[in-house]
Amino acid sequence: MRTVRTRVLLLAAVVAAGLLGAGTSHGAPGVAAHVPERAPEQAAAGPADDCSGQTLPPSSAESGPKVQEIKHRGTLIVGVDQNSYHWGFRNPQTGRIEGFDIDLARAVAKAVLGDPEKVTFKTVPTAKRIEAIRTGQVDLITRTMTITCDRWKEISFSAPYFASGQRLVVPKAAKVTTMAQGLNGKRACVADQSSSQAELKRDSRGASEVKVQENQLDCLVLMQLGKVDATLTDVALAAAQAAQDPTVEVAGETIAPAHMGIAMKKEDTDLVARVNQVLVDYRADGGWQASYDRWLASSMGASSAEYQK
């Protein structure tokens, strides 16, 4: 337990690093997470508030002002996480930032600039993602960001690149089997300005207390310290936490089905269309599946079909 906690605390500490350099990534073997099968009566609850149909048609055009700005600069600036295991995290052995979302960012850089290495990563806390986009700190964000109608009012999204929802992470010793059992009368934790926080604001499901942290990994640390009983987070991040710490597991049914998208500035319509073309090509050439197999299959299952819907 001490080893796991130390590793998580070290990963959380590197948030302060800020700007991350570009470079190639080399994967580390994943640890399989226990993700219970959903029973028929545990079907996903709640409407899908993803507004994914609002995005622009894909286009390979390179003449738009934002795409030209990126080309002139010579690097794509991407907002990422560096504490989400298998998605965007620092490999402690290599010091490199890597994961599924990082592969996706590199695919955009390759399409726009001809080189997957021409990308500069900036760490962005969950609560600062929209601000980073709107103020031009980054060109785009690939950071397990859920597409929602409220967010569409402030920024734009690409077409969906991953089907998602909300799940609980709990200590294995708690033996939780349903969402209600995991939250009713319990201390819950969510990341600030996350879809999980919005969901518990809408319906607390009987939680006695909701602690809000800067990042979802901080919730895992609080759970290890016995200060919260459960973390509500994105399906993908829930599986990542369970892969990272063998003392916790993903429990209960999936709620609030949604999709992840790449976030961009509303005015950058040419970049939105270009990124949507990248997503079409990324799926068609096998890049999406190869990245899934490398980073996520061990924790989310060998079949990726349900996440491509």
Rank of each mutant, 00 (worst) to 15 (best):
R5P: 00
V8S: 04
L10P: 07
A13P: 02
A16M: 12
T24N: 13
H26I: 14
A28L: 11
A39N: 02
G46A: 07
P47N: 04
E69T: 10
K71Q: 15
H72Y: 07
R73N: 09
Q82P: 00
Y85M: 07
G88L: 03
T94R: 09
D101I: 00
V108K: 02
V108Q: 03
K122G: 06
T123A: 12
T123C: 11
I133D: 03
R134F: 04
R134N: 13
G136N: 03
G136A: 09
R143Y: 05
T144R: 07
R151S: 15
W152C: 06
Y161C: 10
G165M: 01
P171L: 11
A174H: 06
V190S: 11
Q193Y: 08
S196P: 06
Q197F: 05
D203N: 14
R205D: 00
S208G: 14
N215D: 11
L217N: 02
Q224D: 10
G226M: 03
T231Q: 14
D234R: 10
L237F: 03
A240G: 14
A240Y: 07
A251Q: 04
A258G: 15
M264I: 03
A284Y: 05
D285C: 05
D285H: 05
D285Y: 01
G286H: 10
G287R: 13
Y292V: 04
Y292I: 02
S304T: 01
Y307K: 04
K309V: 01
K309Q: 14
